[in-house]
């Protein structure tokens, strides 16, 4: 017996892709930061190469999000208060109650940090030289802030889904966590691929472990999510099952859970349990990315509504 009587927001492909990409961007930035913090000199090459990733992606993401708006021409209303919104003070648009508003700002600012990272990467690639950039790009505070923004970018959309009245989405507090996990996964996956391609075995090894841990954490969060559904008596689990209709079900279980989590987990496990003949780490990375995409798809296409008729 569904207990929600809501309409679906009809967020589908553009959003799925956009948030997948944003997740990678933020995740990659996080991985980059991780290497900066935790890695030593010999790991930095990978970090520097990763610097190239966020910016281009962060240029695509807003485009996709804007495309998805019913009134794309008005996207600025998210940041600059429209003169028509007379009730609100100030020139800028802030609504602390709206995760979407948080997210919009986070993306814009994060864009700047992605740019810095990009420039830094260029610099280190030796093609262009921004010596003046060093103190900024390697500044621990700057990096920290960048990390924080990356965190918001990767997590806000999850929190946003929690902050609705949709079946499933709003029945838990774990959407934000799930989104962060999965974008971290995609980030590390990209890092692993990059590192693997560069042949920096040491770094790859560390990243591989990191990915294993992240996958473990993600798996745990996912279990908690399912548990939290089952925990509620007002039909959330029924709702969840109902939500995994048609394609969404297989995509979620096989794609997200299977390819995205289980296979990597088993492969990356200390004593690896999947007999993939010395699969290149890149392959694993790609599997993870596919899984994350599957996860995004499942989430958005599972939007269900119980408008009683």
């Amino acid at each position: 017996m569904p207990t929600k009587y809501v309409l679906p927001p009809e967020w589908e492909w553009p959003i799925t892709i956009a948030l997948f990409i944003a997740g990678i961007a933020a995740g990659a930035y996080a991985a980059m930061g991780l290497i900066h913090f935790a890695g030593d000199k010999r790991d930095q090459a990978v970090a520097h190469r990763l610097g190239f990733v966020p910016l281009p992606l962060m240029l695509v993401v807003p485009l996709l999000l804007i495309v998805d708006l019913g009134q794309p021409g008005r996207f600025l209303n998210l940041l600059v208060k429209s003169p028509a919104a007379v009730e609100r003070g100030g020139p800028l648009m802030f609504n602390s109650n709206s995760p979407m508003n948080w997210g919009s700002w986070a993306m814009v600012i994060f864009g700047a940090f992605a740019a810095i990272a990009f420039a830094d990467a260029l610099h280190h690639s030796g093609r262009v030289r921004f010596t003046w950039l060093e103190p900024l790009s390697h500044n621990i505070v700057v990096l920290a802030i960048g990390e924080l923004l990356a965190l918001v970018v990767s997590g806000y959309s999850g929190v946003l889904l929690n902050v609705t009245n949709q079946g499933v989405w709003s029945d838990t507090w774990l959407m934000g966590a799930l989104f962060i996990c999965f974008s971290e996964l995609s980030g590390l996956a990209v890092a692993l691929i990059v590192s693997d391609r560069m042949g920096t075995v040491r770094t790859s090894a560390a990243l591989r472990t990191a990915l294993f841990y992240a996958a473990t954490v993600s798996a745990v969060v996912l279990l908690l999510f399912l548990a939290s559904m089952a925990a509620q008596q007002d039909g959330s689990l029924t709702a969840l099952i109902a939500s995994l209709h048609e394609l969404v079900g297989p995509v979620f279980w096989i794609g997200a859970v299977g390819l995205g989590l289980l296979v990597p987990l088993l492969y990356l496990a200390p004593r690896r349990l999947v007999p993939v003949p010395n699969a290149s780490l890149s392959l694993i990375g790609i599997l993870v990315l596919v899984g994350v995409l599957a996860f995004r798809y499942a989430v958005f296409f599972s939007a269900i509504s119980f408008v009683q008729s």
Binding site: Y5, L7, P9, W11, M100, V307
Partner: peptide
């Protein structure tokens, strides 16, 4: 003339009232 059609409100109304 302010609405950008993001549909967030649609998913947020507990009564399935506001619609795109």
């Amino acid at each position: 003339d302010v609405c950008i059609g993001c549909r967030y409100c649609v998913g947020a109304c507990p009564f399935g009232v506001i619609a795109f």
